[in-house]
Amino acid sequence: MSDTAIEKRENRVDVPERIDQGTWYTPLVDIYETGDEFIFQADLPGVKPGDIDVSFENGVLTLDARVQPRQPQDQEYVWQEYGVGHFYRQFSLNTPVDVNGIKAELKHGELKLTVPKAENARTRKIRIKTG
């Protein structure tokens, strides 16, 4: 057997492989839910408002943000503690949502996504009769 043969390995079928160049990072998020909506807040430092795509398809919410290089191309770091690259993260939501009502706001490198629940998925307070 040739040494150059690529070892056969198990594949994760749920993760598509990336073909384009670059490094992707997983942004840190806070997610909370109220009776009417989900709020997603993600840290996306260095992302400009035009460079972010938010999509919702088949119950999967996708954040895809591009980061423009900030350092001169030929400049080497004297000291480096973090990497600079794009951001990508997906979430699946089982609760039906109102796709047309999704709002996104990007300010100071912080994204706030408001995802309203579909009318029939909202929590309703049921008055309990006594007596």
């Binding site: 840290d43 996306l44 430092p45 260095g46 900030r70 350092q71 001169p72 400049q75 080497e76 770091y77 004297v78 000291w79 480096q80 503690e81 973090y82 600079v84 100071h108 490198g109 912080e110």
Partner: peptide, 19 residues
């Protein structure tokens, strides 16, 4: 976390501080 690079004139310190 910080990154640092330099040229003859100055050093450039960068930090990610979202929000």
């Amino acid at each position: 976390a910080v990154n640092l690079w330099q040229d003859g004139e100055a050093g450039y310190l960068e930090a990610e501080l979202p929000g």
